[in-house]
Amino acid sequence: MSTTIWIILAGALATYLTRIGGHVVLSRFEKIHPRVDAGLRAVPAAVLTAIVAPYAAFFGVAETLTLAIVAVLALFLPALPVFALGWACILGLRYLIG
């Protein structure tokens, strides 16, 4: 099998482990340490922010502006309209700014 297939299968196993992990492991403990709990909850926001941040900082004016607009729009609109407007933004701003 190719490396790609192995990556996919390993990714699938890793994902399934997260989906049973909480039930299998955490439910055995009466209490999770509060700091561990706080750290665990921070994971999704921390990972996704870390991925996005360089796009906001290093990729150009149109890109920075688009992400700023998306951040504001997300305060008022659900995910799908935000996504559509963000897409329109990057197209429009790239056209205008170049």
Binding site: G11, T15, T18, G22, V24, S27, L40, P44, V47
Partner: peptide, 13 residues
């Protein structure tokens, strides 16, 4: 992939 899906651990708990 594991890190991004880490939140599922909370869901399953």
């Amino acid at each position: 992939i594991f890190a991004v899906n880490f939140r599922h651990i909370l869901y399953s708990a």
